[in-house]
Simulated scan of single mutants.
Amino acid sequence: MTTAPDLIVPTEPLEPSPREGYDLYLPEQGGRRPVVVLVHGLFQEPPPVSPRRTPFFRAYAAQLARRGTAAVVLDHELTGGMRYPEAATTLGRVLEAVRAEDRVDPDAVAVWFFSGGGPLAYPLLAAGHGWLRCVALTYPLLPTDDIPGWPTLADAVRGLGATPLVLTLVEHELPGFGEGQQALLDAAPPGMTTVSVPSAQHGFDTGPGSDDHRAAVVQALDAVAGHLLAPTGATAAPAQG
C-alpha cells in the first residue's frame, strides 16, 4: 500500500494533543473521561505513514471522541516485523502514561486491537487489570499454539473474566486468521459480543465499503463507547450482528 488508508465512515477531523509515543484525542466534555487506546497491527516493513498518523486511526479516534470518550493512538514495534515482546512493553508503558493523564479516568480504560496486533491482547488480558473496562478485537490475529513466555488463550480468557469484549469478524478472512478467531468463539467469554460483517474482507473498514460495512464500524464504535460510558456496575446493550 503506497497511500495511508482512511476509514470508510465519513469523519470530521479532530486535532490530537501529541505526546511522546502517542496522540491523545479529547472530547468536548470536561473532566476525567474514559479512554480507548487503539492498537495497530503488524507491518513487515515500516509503512510510509506511521499508523498513529494515518487518516484511518485518526478517524477512529475522532469518532470515539465525538461519542464522549478520550482516545489514544500509539506507535509500537510491530511496524518492523514480529517484535511482539517489545510491542507489549511499549503498550504497557503507554497505558501507564495514559492513565496518568489529567483528563483521563484511570479506572475506565478500553483497549482496541486491530489485525496483527491481536496477540498483544493476551498479556494484557491475562494480567486481569481492574481498570480494564472493555476490550475490542477487529479481524484479529490470535495465537492458537502455545508460545514460550507468552500467555495462552486460556490465560487471556481467565484474566478477562466477564469484562466486555467486542469482536468484529469478516466473512472472507485472511488465511491463518480464522483458526484463532474460532478458538475465541469456542471459548465463549461471558462478556463477548460479536459484530459479524457479511461479504466483508480483512481490512473492510478501509474501503471500498458498502452501507452494511459502514454500519458495522458504527456498531463497534457504539459498543465500545457504550461499555465505557455505562454507569459503573451496568452493562451496555450488547452489539448484535
Rank of each mutant, 00 (worst) to 15 (best):
A70K: 10
A70N: 09
A71M: 14
V72S: 03
V72L: 07
V72C: 09
V73T: 15
L74K: 06
D75C: 12
D75Y: 12
D75K: 10
E77V: 00
E77A: 15
E77N: 11
E77T: 08
E77D: 15
E77Y: 04
L78C: 12
L78S: 08
L78R: 09
L78A: 09
T79W: 06
G80V: 00
G81R: 04
M82Y: 01
M82T: 09
M82K: 10
M82V: 00
Y84E: 01
P85D: 07
E86L: 10
E86W: 00
A88E: 07
A88F: 02
A88L: 01
T89M: 01
T89H: 09
T90Y: 02
L91F: 12
L91K: 07
L91N: 08
L91A: 10
L91T: 11
G92S: 13
R93S: 14
R93F: 00
V94I: 15
V94N: 07
V94P: 04
L95A: 05
L95S: 03
E96Q: 14
V98H: 02
V98T: 13
V98Q: 02
V98S: 12
V98G: 12
R99H: 03
A100W: 09
A100K: 14
E101S: 11
E101T: 07
E101V: 03
D102R: 14
D102E: 15
D102G: 13
V104L: 02
V104C: 01
V104N: 01
D105K: 11
D105R: 15
D105P: 06
D105C: 11
P106A: 02
D107E: 15
D107H: 10
A108F: 00
A108D: 08
A110R: 05
A110W: 05
V111K: 01
V111E: 01
V111A: 03
V111Q: 00
V111C: 05
F113M: 10
F113I: 03
F114E: 12
S115W: 04
S115H: 07
S115E: 13
S115T: 09
G116S: 07
G117E: 03
G118A: 11
P119A: 12
A121D: 00
Y122A: 13
Y122F: 15
P123R: 11
P123N: 08
L124K: 03
L124W: 01
L124E: 05
L124C: 06
L125T: 04
A126V: 10
A126Q: 08
A126D: 03
A126G: 07
A127T: 03
A127N: 00
A127L: 00
G128H: 06
W131L: 02
L132W: 05
L132Y: 08
L132R: 06
L132H: 07
R133L: 11
C134V: 14
V135F: 03
